[in-house]
Design a protein around this nucleic acid. Structure first.
Length: 204
DNA sequence: CCTAGACCTCATGTAGAAGC
DNA sequence: GCTTCTACATGAGGTCTAGG
């Protein structure tokens, strides 16, 4: 059996834009530009022959057709997400951790973290910096002395010591369960080994 | 009224993949 | 290797709102 489906990227753009009622917010969620979202939605409308949004200035409104279409599309994506979650492979989530060069990884006891969180496949890239985070090469970054970055959540993981080490994660994923788990683990490990960030050491 | 900011549209260019 | 298609980015421009 085949399915007469519109392009899934266009559906994602529509679904995100309909939820936020904003191309800009949808673009932020999907990590593309507003123009890309607008083009995807426009292409979807052309393909369906139905106008899904009413474009007002500084405001986006779902047409009746859009309102009728949205629940089914959202439900479809939810089904896909559920089905994906039910696969439950050994490491359902792959987490790429970037670490600045002078950080001593050995005191973090990552092997214990991996044992405690079998559902998380943790991989480490060192040295890594904001460049790697921006390019998406890493999902999280342990950086030194850098506490504020627009669009990112920065949590200090070793209170009260020098420049400090910060765990930086994109706002969109900062509250994901696996990220929260790692953040808590990191804080606990840093509290247990307060000297972990003071001794530059090459690893590898 | 003027200006800045916000948001979207449109035209154009780029990059990668696929088909020939 | 060339062409086509898809997806996306960039930059200019239009329109509205808010503030001075």
């Amino acid at each position: 059996m085949t399915y007469a489906l519109p392009p899934l990227n266009a559906l994602r753009a529509f679904e995100a834009a309909a939820r936020h009622l904003s191309f800009k917010m949808a673009a932020h969620e999907l990590h593309v530009t507003p123009a890309a979202v607008g083009q995807q939605v426009k292409a979807l409308e052309a393909r369906l022959g139905v106008q899904l949004f009413e474009r007002l200035h500084k405001q986006l409104i779902l047409t009746e057709a859009g309102q009728a279409y949205l629940p089914g599309v959202s439900e479809g994506f939810r089904h896909i997400a559920d089905a994906t979650a039910q696969l439950k492979p050994a490491a359902a989530v792959l987490l790429q951790l970037g670490v600045h060069g002078s950080f001593d990884l050995r005191r973090l006891k990552l092997a214990e973290f991996r044992s405690a969180h079998l559902e998380i496949g943790l991989q480490v890239l060192q040295p890594a910096g904001l460049h790697e985070l921006a390019e998406g090469k890493v999902d999280l970054l342990i950086a030194r002395g850098l506490g504020h970055h627009p669009g990112h959540r920065c949590d200090r993981v070793n209170e009260g010591s020098g420049l400090g080490d910060w765990l930086i994660a994109p706002e969109g994923t900062a509250d994901c369960p696996e990220v929260v788990s790692f953040r808590e683990w990191l804080r606990a490990a840093m509290a247990e080994n307060p000297l972990a960030n003071r001794r530059p050491r090459l690893v590898g």
